[in-house]
Amino acid sequence: MTQLAIEISGLKKKFADKVVLNGIDLEVPVGKIFALLGPNGAGKTTLIHILSTLVPADAGSARIAGYDIISQKEEVKQAISLTGQFAAIDEMLTAEENLWMMGRLSGLSRSESRARARELLEQFDLTEVASKRVKPFSGGMRRRLDLAVSLVVHKPILFLDEPTTGLDTRSRRTLWDAILQLTDEGVTVFLTTQYLEEADQLADTIAVVHAGKIVAHGTADDLKSQIGGEVVELRDEHDVVIKEIPTGGSIHEIKQILDSLEKNTTSEGTRISIRRPSLEDVFLNLTTKEREESLR
């Protein structure tokens, strides 16, 4: 049996009259990266808050590292580290002081905290700004420091709430590398994201959450094959995509698609290609299906 770092069953949460989580079931094995993918307001942050003991759930249960999030709160806190959606660092302190403070609060001695701070500053390329106050730091630097702070002591489970939102491509890549390295040390990562590319690049398994429910769950490939084997893509003479049609990929189906194309959608320069579906296709497919169902 694979060991589970996170087990969630039937979690529900309502704020006032608004249902935020409507029965979430999930399992994340030890040492894997799990991505919770969903649009704004899908309930991602609420789920992280519940799992990290900040907010109680209305119904259902969850175990983190084998500990119950309600009855064994202190044990759960020992096992996790949370990096919230807003950089959780102290602006009035320097980068090094932030790391030192977390080391001390996590039970390291003064000299251990100092040594660990230096190590992390080095690892996250922050040595040059170590003794500068955080306030004027760029978004990328803040996020790097934020992640460094959550790694001060080795915690088996890491929660990252939208770790790269608002970052430029370069900072995003640096952060991705850092997250990928964590699994080499056996850390389980539970991250939320709005970016399909991020989930695709990082995660071993992905769950798509929409309107408080998991609408799909599996590896990136599983999800891609859920909406059919291939996508027929039409591009106009300027190489702009004009239509994407999911299909099983058999000759028969593709012939049908070609027959169904109306004259006015294509022109002389229209090109056709067949590709594997991207996560974007999966995501749009799932969330629109869900919306149509809820409208019915």
Partner: peptide, 8 residues
């Protein structure tokens, strides 16, 4: 956000 970190 720092308060959430302290709390967890």
């Amino acid at each position: 956000g720092i308060i959430d970190r302290f709390r967890t």
